[in-house]
Design a protein around this nucleic acid. Structure first.
Lengths: 106, 106
DNA sequence: CGACTATTTGGCTATAATGCCAAATAGTAG
DNA sequence: CTACTATTTGGCATTATAGCCAAATAGTCG
């Protein structure tokens, strides 16, 4: 693996890591329906404000989300909807896994 | 979030986590060109056999790879190529990030 | 300014992931 | 059976991640 390749795969892994948490996937899913402020997200998630805020900053640092402050609230939204294709990928694997389970039961 | 939703996002996160490592992404990339035995992967990666083997087992447990043993060697391959769309997703974000950088420099 | 609300940050502990080495396993060949 | 090769597993030290609490920050309103 060349150093250049290495850098590429590390950059990719950074983004994958940002997505690799149930709460963060949930956040992405919610934001796919439109922007939300932190308190709305927090309520839906049901964790501490600080926890939610840290998840959001992970996603933001990876370039997946962007935010802006309007009055007292900070609104977050997806920076590019291409992330949603990620779910398609994931679902494909899950479906495969389920099919295998079924096949084994026969 | 209903318990059912929670389970769904946890299942998705399992798969995302399996992909969230540079070496494992590299493995997926190599296997997208066809199956490889562990020693070929090990050589390309340049890490300890045990390290490579553990990465492979993570990907296999997530349902991303499958393997079979032929003679002394174990061959691994992608279980469904849908994982490759993952790279498309990732690249989309990386490209966005790069564009933003460029925009800032103007 | 001072009280209040929304959010972020720092600190801390608990848990999980990484990667090496050494040992175990499985298949092959003599 | 023995020696050998390919791979996996167990153990362990190191580092990273998660989530809570408390404190800091930023914006709003009187």
């Amino acid at each position: 693996m060349t150093p250049k390749d290495q850098a590429l795969f590390e950059a990719r892994a950074e983004i994958a890591k940002a997505l690799a948490h149930p709460t963060r996937l949930y956040i992405v899913d919610m934001l796919s329906k439109g922007e939300r402020c932190v308190c709305e997200l927090r309520e839906a998630i049901g964790a501490d404000f600080s926890t939610v805020s840290k998840h959001l900053s992970v996603l933001k640092k990876a370039g997946i989300l962007e935010d802006d402050k309007r009055g007292l609230q900070v609104y977050y939204r997806l920076r590019c909807t291409c992330v949603l294709s990620f779910f398609g990928c994931i679902e494909g694997v899950l479906r495969e896994n389920a099919n295998k389970q079924l096949a084994l039961m026969e």
